[in-house]
Design a binder for these strands. Structure first.
Lengths: 126, 126, 126, 126
DNA sequence: GTGGTCTAGACCACG
DNA sequence: GTGGTCTAGACCACT
């Protein structure tokens, strides 16, 4: 459960949690049935409110990433590889559509976009 | 002055205004010294509050896109082509850095990112 | 948080707030992470509008003096001594450049300016 | 009548005019009885409104720098050297008092202020 | 007419 | 409780 949150970010804390954990599940790093830490434990570790953790867990459950059993805790949903891929595609397409709209608003052609992606990608590498 | 805003968007209205107008200036569609519509006129046309427009205008002025003269109005700043390019690069790099971080969090390699960009780009075309 | 504002001053109220608080931070009187009073509390104390306080807080945030966390409050930015000095130098130079231009327009030489500074400075002392 | 105005300045245009002309009179560059240009001429030359020029002229008359004769125009007041000095001292003291208050708010001592004045003064020289 | 400032008060998301 | 957004409407200085 390698997660980190920054209270100073513009993103709400619960969303930071949601994004990181859902990404880990989609990448297959968190296996099926893996038990998430209790919300109180998680809250203490990250020094945030229990309510905030609960909000993230609820979001994960609503989106089908985890399921909860009263009195037992929360566990990673049993997703088939196909289901994981579907979810990933859905999220990627949604995000990419917005991003491309922005790049085009900045007057970039497809060719230029790709050139920029390569450029910034390699910059980060260093 | 082709701008549209949606109050239902997740983005604040003033930011929608800021982004559209700054993009038009960066693309060179709004020439130097071009007079922006008075904030009251703009507000009426878009059916939003004067203050919301003013906030967008203030952002544009702060970022060096326009300048205002009390009693006269607001005008597009006299940007050299080089300055425009600099601003564009700055904004693009900032945005791309965030976007690439997300794609990598989703487990994509550079090669896959480019494939996706091409794919979604062409989807939109149709 | 020793601040006072005068609605009768020629300076906007929000700017009076900005100048006083930023000066206190630059002098090191307000330590890092110090929590500023909530804008509503501040507004009540100074008997001004919440929005006016907010405008000052926004300026402070934009200039890197404070940061805000929704639901938590606003806090003094963690500035190194070097950063504080840099900001001070920048502000001082900017102001002094204007002031000296005025004195020269009044026909003063460097020597005379210094004599005047000493004179008026000591006057105030008494 | 060497005057220049900038509509983009934060200072009102009429005040820019007032400050430049009053300074020239105080420095003795504009002799007594010197006829100021007609407001319409001045307005055309500077490409500003007649009303704005009139406002500046009124301010100069109110402060005793010029006098006007209907049908003839405006002329520089007959100021003795002593009177000129008095006015200069008054303006300088008023301005310096504000400036010093600012420098002290920034935490400067008299010694430091003088050092800064010398430093910035010489910077401008180059 | 223009933009600049300030007001009172509403609703929202976040924690 | 916090800050963030948006509203309607007032008054001012400048041109």
């Amino acid at each position: 459960m390698n997660v980190t949150v920054s209270p100073r970010s513009e993103k709400p804390i619960y969303q930071q949690l949601y994004e990181q954990i859902s990404a880990q599940i989609l990448r297959g790093e968190l296996a099926s049935e893996f038990p998430l830490p209790p919300i109180r434990t998680m809250a203490k570790e990250l020094r945030i409110s229990v309510i905030t953790v609960k909000k993230a867990w609820e979001m994960l459950e609503r989106e089908g990433f985890i399921y909860s059993i009263v009195g037992r805790g929360c566990f990673v949903e049993d997703l088939s590889a196909a289901a994981r891929t579907d979810k990933r595609i859905e999220k990627l397409t949604e995000r990419l559509t917005k991003d491309l709209a922005y790049y085009r608003e900045m007057g970039l052609t497809l060719h230029e976009i790709i050139r920029w992606v390569k450029h910034v990608y390699n910059e980060r590498e260093n």
